Simulated scan of single mutants.
Amino acid sequence: MFIGNNSFTPADLECLEGDAWLQDKIVNSFLAKLQRSANWDRKKRVLVLSSFLADKWEKGSKGIRQWIYKLVRFAIIILLPVCTAAHWFLMAMEPRKCTVACLDSLKSPERAMRFYNYWIEYIAEREKHVPEGLVEWNSVQYLCSQQLDGNSCGIFTYMVSYFNIT
């Protein structure tokens, strides 16, 4: 089975059944498909970053050359799905307003601040390679539904992405 440019084995798809947690490959593929659909009519300019970028941040990797996206300034909204400590949440950035929001179904101000700081470090490093003047960002908070179980954060991340894009 293919979703976008990714192929999936039956084992990959097992995470779609029951109460299993969604894998990075599934989340990234479905959000990439949402991005393509939103950008199809060119009214929305959506950029979805790979969750693997956030993995790099968590591991302290400063080697981001392959992760420098050139379309940041032209996007109306940038979405970054993040999985950390077996929990998915979504970061949503608006380059025109230079705002960053953390949409988290298990609200954690510490986690939100940590990933906001990662974004600031990333964009400062990116600015060295792609100067666009996007260096002054502000953290914003939005009301966000909270999950009542221990395993729906991946679906929550997908649905919040869907509603931000459509």
Rank of each mutant, 00 (worst) to 15 (best):
F52D: 10
R65V: 13
N138Q: 13
P81W: 00
L31F: 06
L53K: 01
L16N: 03
R42K: 11
W119K: 00
K59R: 12
R45N: 13
G154F: 02
I3T: 12
C15A: 03
A32N: 13
N117R: 04
A38L: 04
Y69M: 09
G60N: 07
I64S: 06
E17D: 13
E14T: 14
R73C: 15
R114K: 05
D19E: 13
I77G: 10
D104W: 03
I68G: 08
D55T: 14
Y142M: 08
M159N: 15
L47K: 05
G60R: 00
V82F: 00
N117K: 04
E58Q: 12
E127I: 01
I77V: 12
D12N: 10
Q23L: 13
H129V: 15
T99R: 02
D149C: 04
Q35Y: 10
F2Y: 13
E132M: 12
V130M: 09
T157W: 04
L106A: 14
L53S: 05
N39I: 05
N151G: 13
S108K: 03
E136I: 15
A54V: 01
A75C: 10
S50V: 06
C98D: 05
S50L: 10
L134S: 01
P109S: 08
P10M: 07
R73P: 13
K43P: 08
S61E: 15
T84M: 11
S152R: 04
V100W: 07
L47R: 11
W88I: 06
R96V: 11
S145C: 15
L53F: 06
N6H: 11
C144P: 01
E125V: 11
F2A: 10
I165R: 02
S51C: 10
S152T: 03
R114C: 06
F115G: 00
S152I: 00
S139P: 12
C144A: 04
K97G: 03
W137R: 05
S61I: 10
E110N: 15
N39Y: 07
